[in-house]
Simulated scan of single mutants.
Amino acid sequence: MNDAQWRALQEFKTDFKSQVSAWQAQIEEAGLLDQLQSLQKRAADRDGVPLYSLDTPLVYNSALDDIQKTDDIRIILIGDNPGKDEQLARNRRYLVGQSGKIADGFFRKNPELNIDFRKNVLILNKTPLHTAKTKELALIIKEGNPLFAEIIEESQIRLARATVRLHRALYEADDTGNPCKLWLIGYAELRERGLFSVYRDALNAAYAECSARAAPAPISVSAPSERKSGCASQVFVYQHFSMNRFLIDLKERSHSSLSLAENIEHVGRAHRKDILGW
């Protein structure tokens, strides 16, 4: 990373870490930590998740602290929320469970992409609040204290906006000719009335603003067709790596006339149109 990109990443990381701590403090000061953990355990038990140690109700991705200025961030990858492996005290890192292993394996098996999943991919989530399975956030929202729902919503909005700012900074400061891409992974809950529709809307609005600033003439930030300029052109949407859905979808949608990299972008743009509208 060059100086401008490194500064942008440091600002993002500092704000992200501070905000996760602030949400945790809100819950603790309200005397609701036990309730949250009880709901997280109940939801996992209801879904038949084997018993596991619940260590971190809200998870900051500590892998961000390992990134060095000499590292080259090629992809910002947005998952859903931290699962049971991600929240363990020995980890506190995103995508280290089975889905992360599938993703890592995909890039290892395709060296022509020139991507090391653990060095060139910056992994974020739509919310830092842990559940063993993403759908269990619905139980937290429905049965928990209203503060939990507020934090889940606020975290989606803040992270979407902050992530777009980071992506824009990395894109605009690029001096390699290979600008950073953003992969939005797991789109089922991004649809209308989905758990992450709030994140989708905040992301859409933030990229619309970026495109408006990048355009040579003023455009309406509400016009989806205009969101293809600047960093928005490097946004792609995919199915999740879990259950091999990413790989199955890529195989089904690939064209023999295209390279792997071209097929990946082809699929990502098609899903972006479907989910984000541009």
Rank of each mutant, 00 (worst) to 15 (best):
M1V: 13
N2P: 10
R7T: 06
A8Y: 01
K13N: 14
S18C: 03
V20K: 05
S21P: 00
A22V: 00
Q26T: 03
I27M: 07
I27D: 01
E28R: 15
E29M: 08
D34I: 07
Q35F: 04
K41L: 05
K41F: 00
R42A: 15
Y52N: 03
L54Y: 03
T56S: 14
L64C: 07
D66S: 14
K69L: 10
D71S: 13
R74A: 01
I78M: 14
D80M: 11
D80C: 05
N81W: 02
P82Q: 13
G83T: 11
R92Q: 15
L95Q: 11
Q98A: 13
G105P: 10
N110D: 07
P111I: 04
L113M: 05
L113D: 02
R118C: 09
V121K: 06
L124A: 14
K126G: 06
K126W: 00
A132H: 10
K133A: 12
G144R: 09
G144F: 06
P146D: 11
S155L: 09
Q156F: 01
A160S: 09
A162G: 09
T163W: 06
H167A: 12
H167R: 12
R168V: 09
A169R: 10
A169T: 06
L170V: 08
L170S: 10
Y171P: 12
Y171N: 15
E172A: 15
D174T: 12
K181W: 02
L182N: 13
L184V: 14
Y187Q: 11
Y187K: 14
R191E: 03
E192D: 12
G194S: 04
F196T: 00
V198F: 06
A208D: 06
E209A: 12
C210E: 15
S211G: 15
S211Q: 10
S211D: 14
P216D: 05
A217V: 06
I219Q: 07
V221Q: 05
S225V: 10
E226D: 08
K228Q: 11
G230Y: 08
Y238I: 00
Y238K: 02
F241A: 08
F241K: 02
S242P: 01
R245G: 03
L247R: 08
D249L: 10
K251E: 14
H255S: 13
H266R: 07
I275M: 01
G277Q: 12
